[in-house]
């Protein structure tokens, strides 16, 4: 069981305590509390009493769904974060609450992410993913004229986007806490460009499955109004704003990363070489110039420390997954 949580760390988004400075951690706690308060208000009326068991079980579902993984390369695995999926299936504010509970329980039960850093973690993986997922998803859905299969395609796009936004926010918080931008941004965004594709593919297939099996559940959703018949329409202004910001962030990140083609075949080719680890530590040389914009002084040592950071992160992820594999071999029932 523990191995699963180690695997989860490969996402690199659960910030432990100690890495964010206190003002940064507290500032994000404030934002998260505000977001949760809005979400509670929007979802918690007595008229919708069904929501408590539904959202509780859905939080458990996201938690368990994050375990379902698939081998990608070199012992690493792709799996779900789930924020965009939750928002598309349940609506943005229910999605926020569900994800907040997921992230909170991960920190509480499995020490996956810190308690002081929980505000930031909930914001990155819960609030941002759900609001970006829904906020970007609804206008996109209109393009498909409410056709239900459109939802699956939209799911791919917004799932990728939500992962990029979460990675970007995590990087921003680390940089505000004194980590050099060259260490925080390139590896985070680079790795999550691919993790995001995995997220997108899984989200796409999950929604397609649900549409095929229980179209009644998603009919209302694809019609852009009350998802799964549970939630009234969300506030347009805030979500629109979040979407625009999220889109800008993600598009910028994608442009900056030369491999962010959104093309699964490219990923496949890289994976088939089994040479991803080697490539990954090379690639930042190409990426770095673009990242001099957000506040890097451009000195060679800063850039190099970024490169070393990338290499270390990859070596570490590789090492952990190998260790986890070894442990699984010893005790597959544990």
């Amino acid at each position: 069981m523990e191995s699963q949580w180690l695997d989860g760390l490969a996402l690199g988004l659960h910030i432990p305590d100690g890495f964010l400075t206190t003002p940064v951690a507290l500032a994000w706690w404030v934002l998260t509390v505000v977001a949760i308060a809005v979400a509670v208000r929007r979802t918690g009326s007595e008229l919708d009493e069904r929501q408590v068991p539904l959202m509780g079980v859905m939080a458990a579902f996201i938690f368990a769904a994050q375990m379902l993984n698939f081998p990608v390369l070199g012992g690493t695995s792709g799996h779900l974060l789930g924020g965009a999926l939750a928002a598309l299936l349940l609506g943005p504010w229910s999605g926020v609450l569900v994800m907040a509970v997921v992230v909170g329980l991960q920190a509480l039960l499995f020490q996956d992410g810190g308690l002081l850093a929980m505000g930031a973690n909930i914001f990155n993986m819960g609030v941002a993913t759900a609001l970006v997922g829904y906020g970007a998803g609804m206008p996109l859905l209109r393009l498909f004229g409410g056709r239900s299969w459109g939802l699956a395609i939209v799911g791919f796009v917004v799932a990728w986007l939500s992962v990029m936004v979460a990675a970007l926010l995590t990087s921003v918080q680390l940089v505000l806490s004194g980590v050099p931008a060259a260490v925080a941004f390139p590896p985070m965004l680079f790795v999550h460009t691919f993790i995001g594709i995995g997220e997108g593919l899984i989200t796409f297939a999950a929604i397609a499955f649900i549409i095929a099996t229980r179209p009644d559940l998603v009919k209302s959703l694809a019609g852009v109004v009350s998802p799964a018949g549970l939630e009234r329409r969300a506030g347009g202004g805030l979500i629109g704003g979040v979407t625009v910001v999220g889109l800008l962030f993600a598009v910028g990140a994608a442009l900056a990363s030369p491999l962010a083609s959104g093309d699964p075949d490219g990923l496949e080719r890289v994976a088939e070489d089994q040479g991803f680890l080697g490539r990954a530590s090379d690639a930042p040389y190409a990426i770095l110039p673009d990242y001099t914009i957000p506040g890097i002084d451009g000195s060679i040592s800063t850039i190099l420390s970024g490169v070393i950071g990338v290499a270390l992160v990859f070596v570490l992820i590789y090492g952990i997954t190998q260790a986890v594999r070894a442990r699984r071999g010893d005790a597959p029932n544990a």
């Binding site: 779900l80 593919l201 999950a206 499955f209």
Partner: peptide
């Protein structure tokens, strides 16, 4: 990925 999506 599609298989995992179906499992999800």
């Amino acid at each position: 990925a599609a298989v995992v999506g179906q499992m999800v």
